[in-house]
Design a protein around this nucleic acid. Structure first.
Lengths: 149, 149
DNA sequence: CCCTTTTTGAAATTGAATTTCAATTTCATT
DNA sequence: AATGAAATTGAAATTCAATTTCAAAAAGGG
């Protein structure tokens, strides 16, 4: 995202554009997703040790409100953030061996969701689906350690 | 579950059968599921105010190990427990209006899961699926308050 | 009944999430 | 460029559920 577009977005919300916010956004958008706050803060602090944890926390919340970030909570309970620039909805495959998180998108899931909801008289707004298992390298290694979920 | 079967289960684990454990199990099995610890403890304390929060916590952990309870974490992040006496795997519909949690089971979901996993070279052990929306009374009332997830 | 081991429960601890508040920064307006 | 109100920052404090600690109490085999 270009700095100007961010400044515009920010000021449209009646908020102020600060160096910290710009730096955090930049680092966040240029890293792989599914990081927790401590990891994001560590990366930010490597670039600029003056930026505090709290500011990273608040900025990620802000980005979530602006639709630039999405909060995720997998089975280990930690809040993780992913950039939304890729666009649409997706779900996750999570490796219990190495912790790798793979995104997937599946249309069949959407229609299934609607069929189930109809059967129970629900009107669904969103869903969460996570598949927990072992990725092929971990299956091959047969070393299912470092489990977290 | 009959008291004797529980005593057997417990002693097979090399653990001791106590009044507290029996009371907590009894109350837990005879309530609707998806309660958090505070709620379960409140109910237990109504019957026997001497039983502490910690004991309820530890007993629910124990029941989970024994396969009598299952821990669930929905989008609000709180740990909830449900009795497993109903048997098999199921997923959840969660009303954002009134907080109601409805269980469902769907075979299509299982085959979908397998298809997705195969496509990514994963070997899946379990999944988590939650559908968030409004139940029909809440849709009708059009008062989507008390949201929690 | 005795003795060892387990369990209990209040209090302490942990750790992430969130809030507080004084100091600093932004930015619209001079 | 200077001013000042309002927003932001960041360290420290707080919250709150989850978990651990530890001394006292209870279980149950011998």
């Amino acid at each position: 995202m270009e700095p100007d577009r961010f400044k515009t977005l920010i000021s449209e919300e009646g908020l102020k554009s600060t160096r910290q916010r710009a730096e955090i956004l930049d680092i966040f958008l240029n890293s792989t997703g599914h990081r927790n706050l401590a990891e994001i803060h560590a990366r930010v602090a490597r670039m600029n040790p003056k930026i505090g944890y709290t500011t990273v926390y608040r900025t990620l919340k802000l980005l979530t409100r602006l639709g630039l970030a999405a909060e995720r909570k997998f089975a280990d309970g930690e809040t993780r953030y992913e950039p939304t620039h890729k666009g649409t909805h997706h779900d996750h495959l999570i490796c219990l061996g190495c912790g790798k998180i793979v995104e997937f998108e599946d249309d069949g899931l959407e229609s299934l969701q609607n069929r189930i909801a109809r059967g129970h008289g629900f009107r669904i707004f969103h869903h969460r689906m996570e598949l927990y298992g072992y990725c092929s390298p971990c299956v091959r290694k047969k070393t299912p350690l470092r489990r977290k979920g």
